[in-house]
Design a protein around this nucleic acid. Structure first.
Lengths: 130, 130
DNA sequence: TTAAAATTAGGAATAATTCCTAATTTCGGT
DNA sequence: ACCGAAATTAGGAATTATTCCTAATTTTAA
């Protein structure tokens, strides 16, 4: 795993150009413009490889399909569990500190990749159509 | 939405008895023992209702299907992105404080439901079969 | 330049979840 | 307790999201 291919390049380019947390399907649609013959399985396979390589990040959604993010700059995410909106969040609270706290509590080291906050956003609170 | 049904009751009971973060399929299997005629769609529908009612929490997984948790006591989760292991995490770092920070950054209120940490656990680090 | 290894397109297969419908259960008012 | 309206159910079909399979093509590295 890790040979060059213009398809994988195009997918990474799309991620760099679109900082909008696209779904796999949306990435596929964007990439089609650059590589009209690309197949969806290639998109999925390469997304997974790029996640594995740490080039992009998978955002685990409560609502709808998972989303992906290119980390041009280290940040975390706050996700609305109702509408799926994602708010970028530049950590002031510190991973190292939380990491130490976590270690104390679960008696287990963990390499922290990200901290995600799940909640209900302002709009969903006011448009409360429950 | 919100009439009594023994099926929904049984699902909530299962969640209270099994503090193991089951998947929807696992919940279905557990509930079958109490309600042998229950259908899977009923399980899915009621899981969603219980999440909506705030009785149980949905855990958004990186690997495998999503999991659910009954919050017998308020806590957060640290999830291994490789093996899917979930570590319960009793917040010492304070939601209120993070909430204020978030507000400053994204200029938007949000009711924080949970904070989830994603990373790679000790075991996956050492058994590094990448 | 060439053989091995990796990647691809395209579509089939699988997994997870939601939707549909007619029958049953629950609820609220009397 | 009875009755009509509203909610819920079982069962299965349908949909959505993702992975897997295969033969052909591309990339790599000697």
């Amino acid at each position: 795993m890790n040979n060059y291919s213009k398809q994988r390049e195009a997918i990474l380019d799309v991620m760099k150009e679109n900082l909008v947390h696209p779904t796999a399907e949306e990435i596929y649609q964007f990439v089609l413009e650059k590589e009209p013959q690309i197949s969806k399985s290639t998109v999925y396979r390469n997304i997974n490889i790029l996640v594995e390589l740490g080039e992009i990040k998978k955002l685990n959604m409560t609502v709808g399909p998972d989303r992906y993010d290119y980390l041009y700059k280290e940040h975390s995410h706050a996700i609305c569990e109702k509408c799926g909106n994602i708010f970028d969040f530049y950590d002031d609270f510190n991973k190292e500190e939380i990491s130490k706290e976590l270690l104390k509590q679960i008696g287990n080291h963990m390499d922290i990749n990200s901290i995600t906050i799940y909640g209900i956003c302002e709009d969903c609170k006011s448009n409360n159509k429950k």
